[in-house]
């Protein structure tokens, strides 16, 4: 995947399952964080992984309010697009 390509809920779910084997689950488009019993601390830990992987910083409220993987993917995409472009050279 290139830096500019949009992420899907599947990309976020794959990242989640890789980093959180204790909570790993089959995720589809409608799977919510509540369905997987993810509390705010797990979501904050996921935000650390997303920051490292995609360079976007999401606050605890952003994570909790997203409620599901599809909305979270859309939020990550939006933040990536609004990042200032790095000057070349």
């Amino acid at each position: 995947m290139t830096d500019t390509e949009d992420l899907t809920y599947r990309d976020i779910a794959d990242t989640f399952n890789r980093h959180f084997p204790d909570f790993a689950a089959e995720v589809d488009e409608s799977t919510s964080f509540d369905d997987l019993d993810l509390d705010s601390l797990v979501l904050v830990e996921l935000s650390v992984v997303l920051l490292k992987q995609y360079g976007v910083r999401l606050a605890e409220d952003d994570m909790v309010d997203a409620r599901d993987f599809r909305t979270l993917a859309a939020l990550v995409n939006e933040r990536r697009r609004s990042r200032p472009t790095r000057a070349a050279g």
Binding site: S40, L41, L43, V44, E45, S47, V48, A59, E60
Partner: peptide, 10 residues
């Protein structure tokens, strides 16, 4: 404030 502490700590 658990969640905020988590991010600030990391």
């Amino acid at each position: 404030a658990g969640g905020t502490v988590f991010q600030a700590a990391v």
